[in-house]
Computed example of a mutant assay.
Amino acid sequence: MKYLFFYKKYGLLRFLSNHETMRMIERILRRTGMNLKMTEGFHQRLKLSFGQALPTGIIDKAGLFLISTDEEIGEKFISQINSLSPHGFEVYRICKVSEKFELGRSIKGYVFSLIFLEEPKTSEDWKFEKYGKIWKTSFFVAFNSSSPRINAYGQYLTLRESVVFKETFNGESARCG
């Protein structure tokens, strides 16, 4: 069975690199004691797939990873993972997907938001919304395109807000839940 996990990474954990985040998630999963599938070969590792990597420092509200296991996972597993996680990492949804599901082929892209502390002066054709003393804009970035970097546009914060799935993958719905 394959399960797709949705997670958030914020606070000081946003400064973890992609590799450090992957290792942290692997350690959390091992601590649960769940029977997870492993790769074959001399140096076995967990069968884990991740969504697109983010530059260090971006708040992630649309993180994804995929695991394979022989056990049934329920909503109770979310609280178990979150109790074993450091502050700033939170799993908020788990979906059972088919064995054919491939994470990279099912993602269309991501929605990013940029937050500015002063009125933005950018040549981009973005629509800005003002909330008190801050300005915010959101835009879509296709999968495997470069993600916005910290302060690339003079922004104060960068957030990956949500993931956009393709409608179907091999004839199946890519959405879960």
Results as ranks from 00 to 15, higher is better:
Y10M: 06
G11Y: 01
L13N: 01
L13F: 04
L13K: 12
F15M: 00
L16Q: 03
L16E: 03
S17Q: 02
S17L: 00
N18D: 11
H19R: 15
E20H: 00
T21I: 02
M22G: 08
M22Q: 15
M24K: 06
I25K: 12
L29C: 03
R30L: 15
T32D: 14
M34E: 08
N35W: 10
K37M: 10
M38E: 12
E40F: 08
E40K: 02
F42M: 14
Q44I: 09
R45F: 07
R45E: 13
K47V: 15
S49Y: 03
S49E: 15
G51P: 09
Q52T: 07
A53K: 09
A53G: 10
A53R: 05
P55D: 09
G57E: 01
I58E: 07
I58K: 08
I58L: 13
I58Q: 02
D60V: 11
D60R: 11
K61A: 08
K61C: 12
G63K: 08
G63P: 09
F65S: 06
L66G: 05
I67T: 01
S68G: 10
S68C: 14
E71W: 03
E71M: 13
I73D: 08
I73Y: 08
G74Q: 08
K76I: 10
K76P: 07
K76G: 05
K76F: 13
F77C: 02
F77L: 10
S79C: 01
Q80C: 07
S85R: 02
S85N: 11
H87V: 11
E90I: 05
V91K: 04
V91S: 08
V91Y: 07
I94P: 13
V97S: 02
V97M: 06
V97W: 12
S98N: 15
E102Q: 15
G104E: 14
R105Y: 12
S106R: 08
I107R: 13
I107H: 06
I107D: 01
I107K: 01
K108Y: 12
K108V: 06
G109A: 02
Y110W: 02
Y110N: 13
Y110H: 13
V111Y: 03
V111R: 09
S113R: 13
I115G: 02
P120V: 04
K121I: 13
S123R: 14
E124N: 06
D125L: 08
D125Q: 06
K127W: 02
K130D: 04
Y131T: 07
T137H: 00
F139D: 01
F139G: 06
F140A: 14
F140V: 04
V141W: 00
V141S: 07
N144L: 11
N144T: 12
S145V: 06
S147R: 03
S147W: 15
S147Y: 05
P148W: 10
R149G: 10
I150P: 02
I150L: 10
N151K: 00
A152F: 11
Y153A: 00
Y153D: 00
